[in-house]
Design a protein around this nucleic acid. Sequence first.
DNA 1: CTGTCGGGTGTGACCGTTAACAAGGCATCG
DNA 2: CGATGCCTTGTTAACGGTCACACCCGACAG
Lengths: 336, 336
Amino acid sequence: MAVRDPAMTDVARLAGVSHQTVSRVLNGHPNVREQTRLRVQAAIAELGYRPNRAARALVTGRSQVIGVVAQNTTLYGPASLLAALEQTAAESGFAVSVGSVRDLDHRSISAVVERHLAHRVAGIVVIAPVESAGEALERLPQDVPLVTVDGDPHRPMPLVTVDQAAGARAATQHLLDAGHRTVWHVSGPSDWFDSAGRIEGWREALTSAGAEIPPLVPADWSAAAGYRCGQMLARMPDVTAVFTANDHLALGVLRALHEHGRRVPDDISVVGFDDVPEAAYFIPPLTTVRPDFGAVARASLEMLLTQIESVSGGALRRTIAPTLVARRSVAPPPRR
Amino acid sequence: MAVRDPAMTDVARLAGVSHQTVSRVLNGHPNVREQTRLRVQAAIAELGYRPNRAARALVTGRSQVIGVVAQNTTLYGPASLLAALEQTAAESGFAVSVGSVRDLDHRSISAVVERHLAHRVAGIVVIAPVESAGEALERLPQDVPLVTVDGDPHRPMPLVTVDQAAGARAATQHLLDAGHRTVWHVSGPSDWFDSAGRIEGWREALTSAGAEIPPLVPADWSAAAGYRCGQMLARMPDVTAVFTANDHLALGVLRALHEHGRRVPDDISVVGFDDVPEAAYFIPPLTTVRPDFGAVARASLEMLLTQIESVSGGALRRTIAPTLVARRSVAPPPRR
DNA sequence: CTGTCGGGTGTGACCGTTAACAAGGCATCG
DNA sequence: CGATGCCTTGTTAACGGTCACACCCGACAG
C-alpha cells in the first residue's frame, strides 16, 4: 500500500532524461537547456517529487542542518536566541536541530555534540554561557565548524557575544548620572560568563566614577532570588540604586521593595537587563538593557557559514553592543 | 589533510569481522558472540567511530528525527513545550528539528512541513493553535506520522491539547467562590483555539452559576494589550473580578489598575493563565492556571511514537488537565 | 551415522543522491 | 574540411549503512 515516494530516477523517466540531468536542474546547474529544465520541472511537479536530503547528506558528507547546543531554552534569552537562529538559518536553507542539555558539564555537552556529529551536521552553535562548557569544547573534534555564543572570552574559539560589560556599564552609569552616589548589583549565577561580564562592567563604571563599590549580592536568574535579595536591600536605608543582572531578578526586587514600602523610583531606582517584553509593564516600567538577539543570531550564523564554506577556520570574534532602554524605574536619589 | 572519518568497514577490518557484524553489535542484535562483541566495541572505541545517521536514514527511509512546526517560540508556552518535547524525544533517541514559522497560514506551514519531509523525519509535531493551520494540515501527505498540539478540536487529527475550558472554568469558579457576582474576561487573539477554549470555559462557569455574562474584552497575548484593557476596566466601578487569558495580560492589567489606584486584590481580583515562573512575583503574586507542558510533550511524543511504530494511525486524542495555583491576587469583593 | 536445527557470521544488493568522466552535437576557426 | 572547443547530456561509481539470504558448524534427535 505505502508506495515508495518518487525518487530522481522516477522524475528522470517521466521527463525522458537521465537522473543526472534532474540533479542538475535541482541544483541550479548552468548548463541545462531551458526546454529540458522545463520538462524536468513539470515532471517534478507532476510526481510531487521531494529530494531526499538523507541521500544527499550521505554522498556529500554533510547535511544542511545546523546543530544547536543549549541549556534551558525556556529562559527568555536562550529562547529568543534560538528563535532568531532558526529564522536566520532557514533563510540560508539550513534546518536547525536543537539539543538541550540539562547541565552544562562536560559529559552532557559532548553527548549532545556527538549526536549532532552522528547526523553529520554542517556546523554547530553552542550556547554555552558557563565555564564547564568551555572545557568540554576544547576536547571536541576539530574538524566541524563551530561557533560559541556567550562563551568564554578567554578561550581561542570562534565566539559571538553580547557585550555584557558595556551593557552593565551603561546601566550603572545611567544610575550614577541620575545622581546616585553608588549602585548595588544583584548578580546572576557565578559560573555564567554573562554574570561575570555584567559584574565587570558594573565595577568598571563605579571605579571610573570614583564611587564606592558595595558588596556584590549574588543570586541566580530567577524572580524568586530577586525577591530574597530585594528583601535584604529593602532593609538597608542607604541603598538608593540597584542594578540587577536580568529583568526577572528586577521583578523580584521590585516586589520586595514594594512590600517593604520603599517606592520605586522615588526611594530606590532599579535597572534590569534583557528587556523582556513585559518589562515595560512592571510596576513601575523597568529601565533595562536590551541585547539584540537577532544580531547575535545573524553574526553567529555568518561566522558559521564562512567556516563551512572555506576550510580556513580562524578564531574570529564578534561582539554585539546592547542598548539602554530608559523607562520609569530610575530617578534621582531622595534628598537626605 | 581532512581524513574521511571512519566507517563501518574500517571498524570491521580492525576487528577482523565483516561490516555486518559491526552493524549487529551497534543495533544490539542478539546473535553475536560475547567475545566478538567486545572486539568490535574495542575497535569502535579505538577508531572513535561514529555511525552515520544519514546513511542509516537513507536505507531505512526514515531518520531518527522529529520535526516540529511552531510559531513564535519566544512566548513562554511554546518555548516550554518545545523544551519539554526535546527532552522527551532525546530520551527515546530522537533528535528534534524546529521549523519556526512567522505566520500560521497555509503556505508557511506547508513550506516548513515540506522541509521536514525532505529530511525524511520520522514524525511531525505541529504546534498549531490557530484556525488557518488546521486547513493547511488537511492537505498534507497522509503517510507521515503527525500529531497536532493545541490544534482544532473539531478536526479528525491526532491531537494533544491542554484542557483550556477546564482551566478557564476553574479560574472563573475560583473567583465566583470568593464571592464575586460575575467575572470579566480579557481574552487572547480570536483565531487561537486556546483563546476560544478559555472563553468557552469562562462562559460555562458563569452560566452554570447563573451569573451575568459581561461583554468580552478582546486582546492578544501581550502585556501591552493587557495594560490597555486594564485602563478601561479600571474606570468601570462595578468590575470586581477579572480573568485574563494569560499571565502577561494579567501583568498589564495589574499595572493599569495600580496606576488608577485600584488595589488588587482588595478592590479587584485578578486571575491569569500559564503560571509563568515570574507570576509568583507580580504585585501581588498572581493566582493563575498552570498547564503541564511536560505532560503535553510526553503525550504528544507517545502518540507520535505509536504511529511511527505501527502503521495503524487512528485519530487519537489526549487532553491534559491544568491545575489552579492560588496566590494572593484573589479576595472577596469589596463591600458596597 | 545422518538429518535437522539454530546460533554465529559473511556476501551481495540496494537505498537516492552527487561527482567524475565520457560522449555526442554543433559551431567556430585555421 | 578537419581539428578544436563548448554546450548538453548520459554512464558509472561511490557514499555508509541495512536487509535478505547463504553458509558454516556444532548439538541433538532419530
